[in-house]
């Protein structure tokens, strides 16, 4: 589960390596990034606090779920824009969060890169579909 010294990035250190402990601790050095990821995750989190409260309250108000009423409500400009913003914040936040989870637990580089690409593309696809749906209701 945590045999990380045996999962070396791109096999820089074969089992027979005589490299120093310091060489291994430095690894590939600093990526000099991460601050942007941290910032955007906080920005989207702050945005999602009121947006999700709004979503829960609105869904409660429409719990009866009459299709006509719902379509009309979602078609109002203010609602459509709010929903689009919510989806943007949500999927951006989700992308960043899932990325960290993949990086935490997946250590084989090729699998990890594939998973990271999948996370990005799935989030992008869901965002596109969701935003299109809410704008479609506004413009029809």
């Amino acid at each position: 589960m945590s045999d990380w010294k045996r999962h070396d990035p791109l096999n820089r250190n074969p089992a027979t390596a005589r490299s120093s402990a310091l060489y291994r601790a430095i690894g590939l050095g600093s990526a000099k990034s991460g601050a942007h990821h941290w910032w955007v995750q906080r920005v989207t989190a702050v945005a999602l606090v009121p947006l999700l409260v709004w979503l829960v309250a609105s869904l409660l108000a429409h719990a009866r779920g009459d299709h006509q009423v719902l379509a009309l409500w979602l078609g109002q400009p203010a609602v459509a824009v709010t929903m689009a913003v919510l989806l943007m914040a949500l999927f951006w936040h989700m992308k960043l969060g899932l990325r960290v989870i993949v990086e935490d637990y997946v250590h084989a580089d090729r699998v990890k890169f594939a998973a990271l690409i999948a996370v990005d593309l799935v989030c992008l696809a869901l965002l596109a579909i969701g935003v299109f749906a809410s704008l479609y209701l506004a413009f029809r």
Partner: peptide
Amino acid sequence: LLVAWLVAVV
């Protein structure tokens, strides 16, 4: 599900 629900409304 949220996206699916929006699509269903459309």
